[in-house]
Write a protein that binds this DNA or RNA. Structure first.
Length: 583
RNA sequence: CGGGGAGUAGCGCAGCUUGGUUAGCGCGCAUGCUUUGGGAGCAUGAGGCCGCGGGUUCGAAUCCCGCCUCCCCGACCA
């Protein structure tokens, strides 16, 4: 491959585009890789298209390696497929919808579970046909409420989606594991720093699911990492380490105290510390009881649920929702309190909940033998030294408390801290949701139909391009990893002598050796401009054919390290070929 | 959907408060000469629905009313 700058469809910009905020957006636009066509919609210009294809190529190779077979399904889909799975409704406003001339509803595919499922149903019918993995690399469409950050979160984007079809759960686990390994190889080859975090399955429906997050400060997803290991997880998935139980014998007796005007944890702690009880209390010594109500799918009645957690922690709504899923959850309103007079707002304790058959779940830190200050179930009274396992026994534990920086890591190594990431890949064990919706069965060896099971796996190819730039740039421009770079070497000819001719000759020789090359053969462009453009574009290796040519040398530069070296002009092709060969 | 900001040449911006020459600057683009190892100089030139619609006025990029669009933060979301 040989691209000549004199004819390449490329215009670089000196200034950042006004609408760009994040580095990848600025640099991809300035470098002439992409141009905005509409909000959240981008055109890929020649260099951008090459990079995009390079990423897609890596994905394709690794998908093929695990036996995936590539197909290409339409992006334009009739409504009926999405009706069957209720996603025409569930996807809501995020679905791009359109109507054809006959008035029939269509949509632009946001993901393709339905069509893949039907494809397999139509072709395969025997257990002997399975397992099978199909994938495509194609445009997806989602009418995001707020597209942002350029390529990072668009409304039209390039995505690899694959689907596995298996006859049983064991097969699904294998297909899932194959994808997991393939994704690790893909993101390693692409030079990304990433974490694999377990995820909740969300609207897709299903069970086991993991996200691949490229760690960058501009990422939209927060997750937690450990200082002491490579543990990483979504906040929703963090399991609180359970402390050892304490002996109940020898604990002081629980005593009710009159604590006027202490409806909040803060006021309570202040009061206790002024009450002369002979010790100092903190919010962490109190047990806060939060009342919510949950409703299980298909039921109309709400059930009240009491949640006990240390008073220094707030309830994290997302963790609570994930913990009760698939039930929905809401706070109690005034009517609920009125209907349940045993709930004394601000002074709720475990006793009244348990006596009134309200299900009571506590934070995992509330283990037998721990003693707490908590509500005494009547106004202006709290009980001190209420011991778990002696004075009350919860119905179980729940992960609803916020996770904080400095909390111990669930794997026992180090403490947690917050990190941000870009979701570049997602793998799901979907199970039978789609197979059930479309009744996809395979005949088993016994001649009886067996419902198949599926997995769904995505990689945001265009997003990966942006994520690479987010992780790999400096103040001058992009630093492409060689595997995705638009070229291996950028040959720059400067000066008014024979430099440009020599640059073109070297470029031709390099191309003949299989090296991908961009040559800056523009005439009348000053060296500074050419150097600046080369640095902005970010090709890993540069060869400068300039003033040294008179003494028979050219300059070899490494974009990432900035190292420069004079090399005799007649050996530079060998040198570059060797550099490219070793990666 | 809530909050904030912005629509003027391909890109980045000034002009608007206080209406009044032919709407301006930088980059880019074209032509010529000079220049050629770090975003060159001089000269000449092309390029505008001042977001759209209405109004006020002798006169509107500028003032008033309505609308549209885009960007950022949040909510939501893969």
């Amino acid at each position: 491959m040989l691209l000549r700058m004199s004819t390449l469809f490329l215009r670089t910009l000196r200034e950042d585009p006004a609408d760009a905020e994040v580095p990848s957006h600025k640099l991809l636009v300035r470098g002439g890789y992409v141009r905005r066509a509409a909000p959240g919609v981008y055109s890929w210009l020649p260099l951008g298209k090459i990079v995009l294809e390079n990423v897609a190529g890596v994905v394709r190779e690794e998908m093929n390696r695990i036996g995936g077979q590539e197909v290409l399904l339409p992006a334009l889909l009739p409504r009926e497929y999405y009706e069957a799975t209720n996603r025409w409704v569930e996807y809501g406003d995020n679905l791009f919808r359109l109507v054809d001339r006959k008035g029939a509803d269509y949509l632009l595919g946001p993901t393709h579970e339905e069509l893949f499922t039907l494809l397999v149903k139509g072709e395969y019918s025997s257990y002997k046909d399975f397992p099978v993995i199909l994938y495509q690399i194609q445009e997806k469409f989602r009418d995001e409420a707020r597209p942002r950050a350029g390529i990072l979160r668009g409304r039209e984007f390039h995505m690899k989606d694959s689907y596995s079809f298996d006859i049983d759960d064991e097969g699904l686990r294998r297909s899932y594991e194959l994808h997991r390994e393939a994704y690790i190889r893909i993101f390693d080859r692409l030079g990304l720093r990433y974490a694999i975090v377990s995820a909740t399955s969300g609207a897709m429906g299903g069970s086991a699911s993991e996200e691949f997050l490229a760690e960058t400060p501009t990422g939209e997803d927060t997750f937690v990492r450990s200082t002491g290991s490579d543990y990483a997880a979504n906040v929703e998935a963090v399991r609180t380490p359970v402390p050892a139980s304490l002996p109940i014998e020898g604990q002081p007796e629980a005593r009710v105290h009159h604590t006027p005007n202490t409806p909040t944890i803060e006021s309570l702690v202040d009061f206790l510390n002024g009450a002369g009880l002979g010790r100092t209390f903190t919010a962490a010594d109190t047990l806060k009881n939060v009342l919510v109500k949950i409703r299980r799918p298909g039921e109309t009645e709400w059930e009240i649920l009491g949640i006990g957690l240390p008073g220094d922690r707030e309830v994290d709504t997302k963790r609570l929702e994930a913990a009760v899923e698939p039930a929905e959850v809401a706070l109690l309103d005034e009517a609920d309190f009125a209907a349940n007079p045993f709930l004394v707002k601000g002074y709720i304790g475990p006793r009244a909940l348990l006596d009134n058959k309200v299900r009571y779940l506590v934070d995992p830190r509330v283990v037998p033998g721990t003693r707490w200050v908590t509500g005494a179930d009547r106004p202006d009274h709290h009980v001190v030294d209420l011991v778990c396992g002696r004075d009350f026994t919860p119905d179980g534990t729940i992960e609803a408390a916020e996770v904080r920086e400095g909390d111990p890591s669930p794997d026992g190594e180090g403490t947690l801290y917050a990190a941000r990431g870009i979701e570049i890949g997602h793998i799901f064990q979907l199970g039978r949701k789609y197979a059930d919706a479309f009744e996809v069965d395979a005949l088993g060896p016994d001649g009886k139909p067996k419902r198949i099971t599926m997995g769904s796996y995505g990689i945001g190819v265009s997003r990966v391009v942006a994520a690479i730039v987010e992780q790999s740039h400096d103040d001058k421009g992009i630093l492409w990893p060689r595997e995705v770079a638009p070229a291996d070497v950028h040959v720059v000819g400067t000066g008014k002598g024979e430099q440009i001719e020599v640059a073109l000759r070297l470029a031709g020789e390099l191309e003949a050796r299989g090296v991908r090359v961009i040559v800056d053969d523009r005439k009348g462009v000053s060296p500074g401009v050419k150097f600046t453009d080369a640095e902005l574009l970010g090709v890993p290796t540069a060869v400068i054919v300039g003033k040294g040519l008179a003494s028979g040398v050219v300059e070899l530069r490494d974009r990432a390290t900035g190292e420069r070296e004079e090399v005799p002009v007649d050996t530079v092709v060998d040198r570059v070929a060797a550099i490219v060969a070793e990666g």
